[in-house]
Computed example of a mutant assay.
Amino acid sequence: MKITLTVNGTAYPLDVEPRRILADVLREDCRLTGTHLGCEHGVCGACTVLVDGEAVRACLMFAVQCDGSSVRTVEGLAGPEGEPHPLQRAFSAEHALQCGFCTPGFLMVAAGALEADPTIGNDPQRVEALVGSNICRCTGYEPIRRAIMRAAIEQATAAAGDAQGE
């Protein structure tokens, strides 16, 4: 089937088999390998991307379901000049990654949540629930929670500064 995905702002006209999952199309056809495949059953969350702003497991979604959609992968988090996203800076500062395999999924689920509701970072229980949606074998989760809360504060501070500057 012929589809068009807009991935990180770039249109990708593609010819894909209906049974191909979004994760494979992103990695193989779009050459965006930041989306990792772990369990391939939607449990681990390593393959999380944003489709039209919603966090989805790319291993559970067929690429044809995303025809005409906007997809954002971990490669699309960085700013226009390549500067790291607040979440990326916070993950580094809080030592929230070790092997790094799960990191793209955590970054994307957190980005989607913070974009939908910037106040989520103020509520440790909501952050706990968010972090519990993905699996990490290395960090023990606490650094990931701290990173999400740190990024939320940084984004809120930046937004407040932007509002004052207007």
Rank of each mutant, 00 (worst) to 15 (best):
C66M: 15
C66S: 15
D67E: 08
D67K: 02
S69C: 15
S69F: 13
S69W: 11
S70M: 12
S70I: 08
V71F: 07
V71N: 06
V71W: 06
R72V: 15
R72M: 13
T73M: 03
T73A: 03
T73W: 01
E75F: 00
G76K: 01
G76C: 02
G76Y: 04
L77P: 02
A78P: 00
G79D: 14
G79L: 11
G79N: 13
G79V: 10
P80M: 00
P80Y: 00
P80F: 00
P80A: 08
E81N: 13
E81F: 06
G82K: 01
E83S: 13
E83F: 06
E83Y: 05
E83D: 14
P84S: 09
H85Y: 10
P86K: 12
Q88A: 14
Q88H: 11
Q88I: 13
Q88D: 14
A90C: 01
A90N: 00
A90Y: 00
F91W: 00
S92Q: 14
A93Q: 11
H95W: 10
H95F: 13
H95I: 10
A96C: 13
Q98N: 03
C99N: 05
G100H: 06
F101E: 03
T103D: 03
T103I: 03
G105Q: 01
G105I: 01
F106N: 05
A110M: 07
A111L: 08
A111I: 10
G112E: 01
A113S: 11
A113R: 09
L114E: 04
E115I: 10
A116T: 02
A116W: 01
A116Y: 04
P118I: 12
P118L: 10
P118G: 14
T119H: 10
I120L: 13
I120W: 01
N122I: 00
N122V: 00
P124E: 12
P124S: 12
V127H: 02
V127S: 03
V127P: 12
E128V: 06
L130K: 03
L130E: 09
V131H: 06
V131Q: 07
G132V: 10
S133P: 07
S133G: 15
S133Q: 15
N134E: 06
N134W: 00
C136L: 07
C136T: 08
C136Q: 04
R137T: 07
R137M: 08
R137I: 08
C138A: 08
T139G: 10
T139H: 08
T139W: 10
T139A: 08
G140A: 11
Y141S: 12
E142Y: 14
P143R: 05
I144V: 10
I144D: 07
R145A: 15
R145Q: 15
R145M: 15
R146V: 12
R146W: 08
R146T: 11
R146G: 10
R146P: 01
I148M: 07
I148Q: 06
M149C: 05
R150K: 09
A152K: 02
A152T: 02
